[in-house]
């Protein structure tokens, strides 16, 4: 089984989001970077599938040179090698991202590497477009199930479970296939020190695709207003309990 997992570098925002003065980006001077929790589960699943079924696991990102950090993080967790589609830091829209990822998969195929499974996050942490995986599937002519919380590979097929109101919906796809996954799929492992060391020596293949004109074109970012409140302090420590109960009574949840 050859498995590809796609991840996107995003800033780790804390309690508030601060924008650059031109409103084009999040001010990231003081921030670390990460990937979406959905994608972390995708990385973990890729490692587990290859541990169980053999083959090769590959991580891919389209992002700035610094995104090599997220590739190395995945390599430290047990992914075998990485593909870096290097950008100049401008975000690409979903159509352009999907086209570049599909082209990279085609290039691998031309070099004799066929993927049985392509893993994506259900939605990226920042853009939240809910579409790159679906678009890649169409470009490659593969079936795609989305929003999955459980995967089981067996006999050339994959059984996929998706949360739905009142239960779970099950899909059963032939491989090769594209799946988009959600946090809760598994509990990702932490990187080990030897894992981190090995990651430094694993191959990262970089190339620079050209960025097409965006068709969903970002004009500016805005922090939504009107949500800052001044919390009324009901007290300090256990002595505050009677006032808490007063409040609960007032809002009618103490019946």
């Amino acid at each position: 089984m050859n498995v590809l997992v796609c991840v996107k570098r995003v800033p780790m925002t804390g309690g508030t989001i601060v924008l650059t003065p031109d409103g084009q980006a999040i001010a990231t001077q003081h921030l670390g970077f990460t990937i979406s929790p959905h994608e972390e589960c995708g990385v973990e699943e890729a490692v587990r599938i290859v541990e169980r079924h053999g083959g090769e696991s590959v991580v891919l990102t389209l992002g700035p040179p610094e995104a090599e950090e997220q590739l190395r993080d995945a390599l430290a967790l047990g992914i075998d090698r990485a593909i870096h589609l290097v950008t100049d830091g401008e975000e690409w829209d979903a159509q352009a991202t999907a086209a570049a990822i599909a082209a990279a998969v085609e290039a691998e195929r031309a070099a004799g590497i066929e993927y049985d499974l392509l893993l994506f996050g259900n939605e990226s942490a920042d853009a939240g477009g809910y579409q790159v995986g679906v678009r890649v599937a169409h470009r490659l002519g593969l079936p795609c199930a989305t929003g999955l919380k459980s995967l089981a590979v067996e006999g050339g097929r994959i059984r996929c479970e998706q949360e739905a109101p009142g239960g779970r919906d099950v899909y059963d796809l032939p491989l090769p296939a594209v799946v988009t996954v959600k946090e809760g799929l598994n509990l990702p492992r932490y990187p080990s020190v030897p894992g981190r060391m090995r990651a430094q020596r694993k191959p990262v293949a970089a190339s620079r695709p050209a960025r097409p004109e965006p068709r969903l074109e970002r004009l500016r970012l805005v922090v939504p207003g009107g949500q800052r409140k001044q919390a009324e302090i009901l007290g300090h420590g256990p002595e505050a309990a009677p006032r808490v109960v007063e409040v609960l009574e007032r809002i009618g949840v103490l019946t």
Binding site: G235, H236, G237, P238, E239, A240, A241, L254
Partner: peptide, 28 residues
């Protein structure tokens, strides 16, 4: 930071405050 989104707050250790609230509800 959560205080900037909260309507009410109690400053204290949850291991003390939460049982005190439960006891107070039983009392009420």
């Amino acid at each position: 930071p959560i205080l900037a989104s909260a309507d009410y707050a109690v400053i204290g250790d949850l291991h003390e405050v939460v049982p005190a609230i439960s006891a107070e509800i039983r009392k009420a």
